[in-house]
Design a protein around this nucleic acid. Structure first.
Lengths: 105, 105
DNA sequence: CCGGATCCATCAGGATACTG
DNA sequence: CAGTATCCTGATGGATCCGG
């Protein structure tokens, strides 16, 4: 590992949940429940944990509307948006993955 | 998530260990113990598990030399090498990450 | 030297209930 | 609605030992 920042970067993109959140917010703002629905109805604790983590690194934005019932919207920040075009080529790369069944354990 | 392949891709790059292996092999072939040393001396079980996983997807290559003592070398395949230039921009992106201490929990 | 086998601690995440 | 709290289970990874 060359740089210290690489470890943090790996901790961010090396996480299934973080990636799923980022992808789901990549082209739209979503409320908590909407996001949860798109993430296979994972339990709220898991989502909250990763949302807070991404928020701390200024990758996503959390906007609370002081209403009843409560309304909270999540979206990517400028910084987070900058990640999307970098992730795209990797997904393209992954779309041609070949699973070797002979190495099945 | 748009495609089925995206889920697999996320399972590959959304893993700390997989990323660390790929990075460590990105510019050199390494033997098991050398790789282990560079990965903070993580236990062999963890390394083996992820090496096998990456091997099954043709991302890394495992070459066994029938010697005594045994010698096994790991390196990226052509397919794995193709991932490196795609990962680089993301590491650059991550090098400017800002941690927001006010959102410390 | 390359791992597989075993035992154990930790933790992520599921299920569910509940509140501001 | 947007979480937090609680309880629980399964997977992950550490530590150690051992064999080919």
């Amino acid at each position: 590992m060359r740089r210290e920042s690489d470890k943090i970067t790996i901790r961010i993109i090396g996480s299934k949940w973080n990636l799923m959140i980022i992808f789901n917010l990549s082209h739209q703002t979503l409320r908590f429940t909407e996001l949860q629905k798109r993430m296979d109805n994972v339990n709220p604790k898991t989502i909250t944990k990763h949302l807070r983590y991404l928020e701390r690194y200024n990758i996503i934005k959390r906007v609370v509307y002081p209403e009843v019932p409560p309304k909270v919207e999540y979206s990517l920040t400028e910084y987070g948006i900058a990640l999307i075009p970098l992730l795209k080529p990797i997904m393209e790369w992954g779309s041609t993955l070949q699973y070797d069944i002979t190495k099945e354990k």
